[in-house]
Design a protein around this nucleic acid. Structure first.
Lengths: 325, 325
DNA sequence: TAAGAGCATGGTATCGATTACATGAAATAT
DNA sequence: ATATTTCATGTAATCGATACCATGCTCTTA
């Protein structure tokens, strides 16, 4: 079925049928006829021909590090909500934490494959920044901030600073299981904030750091290293909830009581932090919301070609739960 | 940049440039020239023009009930792996558990928007089946079985039957927190299997069922109802791990010891079942793998138009953990 | 009443590729 | 030496829409 077959059946020109679909001038009379034919045949215009002609794909590319992660999938859920509502399609670029894949997708989307791109970034190399600048479609960076680029981000520094200040009130010997410095938001910012807060509150004498990958087991081992070296730690902050749960497992195994012996906190306020026993105090970032905001920002800058770049900070909230006093 | 500009720059016809990209006959000499021009300009052919002309999109539509769910996102991860490897794009249709959205996406993908469709189904109404039959692109149903349709599924019945048989050995009073019957796999099959196994082992005297939604809280309440009515339950099986964790919370709150007082089991072997305390015995379905298999099956039936429909059963494994004796 | 605005419609060029067809040269077979 | 393949290339039709241009009609409005 093509538009010209419909035109023939309806006894009008292809132009008129096209106008029918694009709210152009069509008399009520012809509208009736076309509507009938369209319904009878179940016709709908070929999106590919439309794309070729109009240069509009109504499709957004979303590049992510890993779909089966709670934070990422929640962001994607938020993005998706806005996109389907606005009748955009979402094509997924899951890089499985492979930086080169990220660049590949960026290249793939570069020349008008899609109307816009959202990147949920973690590690941003110089190459990435270059590619992003070169991108000739509207772009939003989600989860991280980059100057001169549309960004929707969580202020990790501010949030962790606030949490650390609270923890400082009840602690003497501090530790943190941190993530790689290469990860700006989850790694570097959170570590810096923790340190700065404690230092500025005069608690910097005893603060110990260990670095671990994002998974439970790595955190568990890191926790073990920490407590072997410093058995008197009374406050442990972890860069993510998963890490906090890993740490919790080790703490249980060495007979520590939470929060009596040790106050523990994580980041993300994810499902798992509510399931752990005790529940884990955590920083809540509304990931669905930031996904939505990112999508809205993107659609806006698709409509308004030369809108100024925005950097939108999404508010955090601290959920005090069972693991802190 | 278009193919004809490249052709002009290289001093050849558009046909030759096209052949260069599609391994047609091109002399080594011209290949060199074209390669140079392409590299200099960074040209790549417009996918939309290609789609229009070739009727191939190299894109797969994946319809899912909810992206931020562990089982779904793991399946999508598996699908994605195969697809990116084979240079296919994945467009996501997240229905947010809205049946009508599911039909909308099915319609949207119907006429060659995509080369194929994978549906991660839960509830399959007659309407769904109709739409699926009418679909004129290759199709795979994932997570559920449907006769005469490519399906990749987990044999919930068989797996639960096996687990129930094991539980039966150590139990006297049985209960299950089940999911809605409308959900074939997670609801109906698991419930039936549990019942059948117990009956056939002569343990059907005391078996109690409660139904709940998939979330933690609903399961918690269902559990509460169960134990109020039947305080002597010693074996509790839940339709999902999340439900099992909800139940576990209630059991803790009424002072039951797991697995001493009650043996508990769930389905999914998801992250949370390893984090709970005690860890929860569960049925492991390799969701990434089934995603991969589904994607492979789909790509195969794209290549081989009239391959016979396959129904592929994915093996399960029971992970016995801390919550059972 | 003439000029301009708004409505309705058709013809056709165009978007950027692929590919059927035509043509000729070189290599191989008979 | 002639007939066939195989290789290399160009011309132009085509995929299925959109949109510019032209045309004619019916109203306003000065």
């Amino acid at each position: 079925m093509t538009i010209s077959e419909i035109a023939k059946l309806a006894g009008v020109s292809t132009a008129t049928v096209s106008r029918y679909f694009n709210q152009g001038y069509v008399s009520e009379e012809k509208k009736q006829i076309i509507r009938r034919i369209v319904e009878e045949t179940g016709f709908s215009p070929s999106p590919h021909a439309q794309m070729l002609r109009t240069k509009q794909t109504r499709t957004i590319g979303v590049i992510i590090p890993k779909i089966n992660s709670e934070t990422v999938s929640r962001m994607v859920a938020g993005i998706n909500r806005v996109l389907t509502q606005e009748k955009y399609l979402l094509v997924l670029g899951d890089t499985e934490n492979d930086e080169r894949e990220e660049l590949k997708f960026l290249d793939l989307f570069r020349n008008k494959q899609v109307d816009g791109v959202i990147l949920i970034g973690t590690v941003l190399s110089a190459k990435h920044k270059q590619r992003i600048k070169n991108l000739d479609v509207p772009f939003v960076l989600l989860g991280q901030r980059m100057l001169g680029v549309n960004s929707v981000y969580h202020d990790n520094y501010e949030a962790v600073y606030a949490l650390a200040s609270k923890l400082a009130q009840n602690g003497k010997v501090f530790a943190m299981i941190a993530a790689t410095e290469a990860d700006q938001a989850a790694g570097s910012d959170r570590r810096r904030a923790y340190w700065d807060a404690l230092r500025e509150l005069g608690k910097s004498e005893k603060v110990f750091f260990e670095e671990a990958r994002f998974d439970l087991h790595a955190a568990r081992e890191a926790c073990s290293r920490l407590f072997e070296a410093h058995p008197d730690i009374d406050t442990l902050f972890c860069a993510t909830d998963n890490m906090a749960v890993g740490a919790l497992q080790h703490l249980h195994s060495i007979g520590k009581t939470i929060p009596h012996d040790i106050q523990l906190a994580g980041v993300g306020d994810t499902f798992i932090s509510d399931v752990a026993n005790p529940t884990i105090t955590s920083i809540a970032f509304p990931y669905e919301e930031s996904g939505q905001v990112a999508a809205e920002l993107l659609l806006q800058s698709i409509v308004d070609e030369n809108a100024s770049k925005k950097e939108i900070k999404i508010a955090y909230k601290i959920s005090y739960k069972g693991s802190t006093r």
